[in-house]
Simulated scan of single mutants.
Amino acid sequence: ENRWLPNFEKIKKEDLSKAKLLFLNYPNNPTGALADREFLQRAVDFAKENEIIICQDMAYSEITFDGERSESILTIEGVKENCLEFFSFSKTYGMTGWRLGFVVGNNKLIDALKQIEVSVHSGAFHVLQKAAVVALSLEDKDIDETRRTYQQRRDILVKGLRDLEWEVKNPKGSIFVWAKIPFGLDSEKMANLLIEKTGIVTTPGAGLGPSGEGYMRFSLIEDKERLKEAVQRMKSLDL
């Protein structure tokens, strides 16, 4: 699996010749993988060599587990020549639906992005922007509490799935658990079975791309008691 990191050497030359942008997302949705500095350095070198712009989606940047921390690609030397890093208020600060975020990186790329953005959106309501300023002013202990909450939920769900013979690795970040389906069922059939027999809504891996077949994505947005209930409901399935 290569720790859910892309292998640049496997990209076909004919595809690479047409590439303009490399889109990364770590901590990753749906796998929960993190990218270390060694990988980020390879990504930067690869992008420079092939004249590709890097866009790193850091929507889950602060939601990491077991003492791990996500690395900003902007800390890699020379990357600011061809990189943008995007951040969201939705996950870390619970501001989903407010449609607030920000981008950091190369000035020319940001100017180009701004030209597109002002043509599509008129801007976020200023009261929401002020709320975002307050969110960015929160102390580290507040973010630590968010991490602890999600990690406790992760531990409950991962243990429950393993007890039910699902193959699950502990996600290192994000708000999802990426689980390999047992019993030889495909992801769409499993998703339908879960919602019809237990009332549990999940995301079939195939819905996230062909490489996701054989997996299910579970969310950690529900509290601990609801996750325990979900595991109990899954035990009632006759598979």
Rank of each mutant, 00 (worst) to 15 (best):
E81D: 15
F183D: 06
E38D: 10
G78E: 03
Q129F: 01
E49T: 04
E145P: 02
F23C: 08
T198Q: 04
N107S: 11
A59F: 00
K189R: 07
V201K: 12
L237T: 00
G207W: 01
S90D: 15
V44P: 05
A191G: 03
S90R: 01
F218Y: 13
E167R: 09
I110P: 04
K169L: 11
L34D: 01
F87Q: 04
N7S: 10
R217P: 09
C83H: 02
I195H: 02
K10D: 10
K159D: 10
R37Q: 14
G184Y: 06
M234A: 05
L138P: 00
T31A: 15
L138W: 13
D163T: 05
R69H: 13
S70N: 12
S122A: 10
S137N: 07
L74N: 05
Q151L: 09
K169F: 07
L22I: 06
V177Y: 09
S17F: 05
K235M: 07
D15Y: 09
I143S: 03
L34E: 08
F176G: 06
D186L: 07
K108W: 10
S61P: 01
W166C: 08
I116A: 09
T96Q: 12
E81K: 13
I116V: 12
L16S: 11
K10E: 15
I156T: 09
S187T: 09
T96F: 10
K180S: 02
Y60A: 00
R147E: 00
E85K: 02
S219Y: 06
G32R: 05
P182N: 03
D66I: 01
R226T: 13
E62H: 13
R148H: 03
Y26Q: 01
T92M: 04
Q41Y: 11
I116N: 10
R99Q: 13
M58C: 13
A230H: 13
E71V: 15
D15T: 00
I181K: 06
M95N: 06
I53A: 00
I143R: 08
G160V: 07
T202C: 12
R3Y: 13
C83P: 00
L157M: 05
K48M: 08
G212N: 06
K91M: 08
E188T: 13
N192S: 10
I73Q: 10
A112M: 11
V168R: 03
I76C: 14
L237E: 01
E14R: 15
K114I: 05
E117W: 15
L157Q: 02
L138C: 11
I73V: 11
I110F: 04
L227P: 10
S72A: 03
N50T: 03
K48L: 09
K80N: 15
W98T: 15
K48V: 05
R226I: 12
K91E: 12
M95C: 09
A59H: 04
V133F: 11
F183T: 02
S72Q: 02
K13A: 14
I221S: 11
E188V: 14
L138K: 13
L113Y: 11
F8N: 03
D163N: 13
L109S: 03
I195A: 01
G212L: 05
